[in-house]
Amino acid sequence: MDQLGIGFVAYSPLGRGFITGTAEPAGQYEATEIRNVDPRRQPGNFEKNIEAVDRLAEIAAAKGATVSQLALAWLLTRGEHIVPIPGTRSPKRIQENVGAAGLTLTDTGLKAIDEILPHGGFGARCTEGHVPTWI
């Protein structure tokens, strides 16, 4: 993307609630809620994702940060063309999110994060049929 001079907006950079600790497994939402079919919330994947976030929380705590700040700081290391857009419903979360910009991640820290989530999460990001098609 740098070579093309374009940017990438990283939507749902906090894992649709996993990183903030508000995720529930599939079946815990209203019947019409799309999160009930989210592959990352299905049995087997959900538990692995929660475990991964717990491990990330240990890294964040050692830096005096939240796991949300760690995740956003990691995104900010991916290059200037990546712009995370975390959703928020409170001023407290906005302040927390902004704090990610001051968090420094070392090569060792980045490697530890990559070892915990080498593919960005357990289970597909989207359900079959809802995956974007790139031209």
Score class of each variant (00 low, 15 high):
3 Q>R: 14
3 Q>L: 11
4 L>S: 12
4 L>H: 11
4 L>V: 01
6 I>K: 14
7 G>V: 00
7 G>N: 09
8 F>D: 00
9 V>H: 11
13 P>Q: 07
13 P>W: 04
13 P>I: 00
16 R>Y: 03
17 G>F: 05
18 F>P: 02
18 F>Y: 09
19 I>T: 13
20 T>G: 13
21 G>H: 05
21 G>R: 03
25 P>K: 14
26 A>W: 02
26 A>K: 07
26 A>I: 00
28 Q>I: 00
29 Y>F: 14
29 Y>A: 10
30 E>T: 07
30 E>W: 00
32 T>L: 06
33 E>D: 15
33 E>W: 00
34 I>Q: 14
34 I>V: 11
35 R>C: 05
35 R>D: 05
36 N>R: 08
36 N>C: 09
39 P>Y: 01
40 R>W: 06
40 R>G: 06
42 Q>K: 15
43 P>Q: 10
43 P>R: 06
45 N>D: 13
47 E>C: 05
49 N>E: 07
51 E>A: 15
51 E>L: 08
52 A>R: 10
52 A>M: 05
60 A>I: 03
61 A>L: 09
61 A>C: 01
63 K>M: 09
64 G>K: 12
64 G>Y: 06
65 A>H: 05
65 A>P: 04
67 V>Y: 08
69 Q>E: 08
70 L>R: 04
71 A>P: 02
72 L>H: 07
74 W>G: 04
74 W>T: 00
76 L>S: 04
76 L>Q: 11
76 L>Y: 11
81 H>K: 12
82 I>F: 15
82 I>A: 10
83 V>H: 14
84 P>H: 11
84 P>W: 07
86 P>E: 04
88 T>I: 01
88 T>D: 06
89 R>I: 01
89 R>K: 15
90 S>P: 05
91 P>N: 11
91 P>Q: 09
93 R>D: 09
93 R>H: 15
94 I>T: 10
94 I>H: 10
96 E>Q: 12
97 N>T: 01
98 V>R: 12
102 G>A: 11
106 T>S: 15
106 T>L: 09
107 D>I: 00
108 T>M: 08
109 G>K: 02
110 L>D: 04
111 K>Q: 13
111 K>H: 13
111 K>P: 02
112 A>P: 04
113 I>Y: 05
114 D>W: 02
114 D>N: 14
114 D>M: 02
115 E>C: 03
115 E>P: 08
117 L>V: 11
119 H>T: 11
121 G>W: 03
121 G>P: 10
122 F>L: 05
122 F>A: 12
123 G>Q: 04
124 A>C: 02
127 T>V: 04
129 G>N: 12
129 G>S: 11
130 H>N: 14
131 V>T: 13
131 V>E: 15
131 V>L: 10
132 P>S: 08
132 P>I: 01
133 T>C: 02
133 T>S: 14
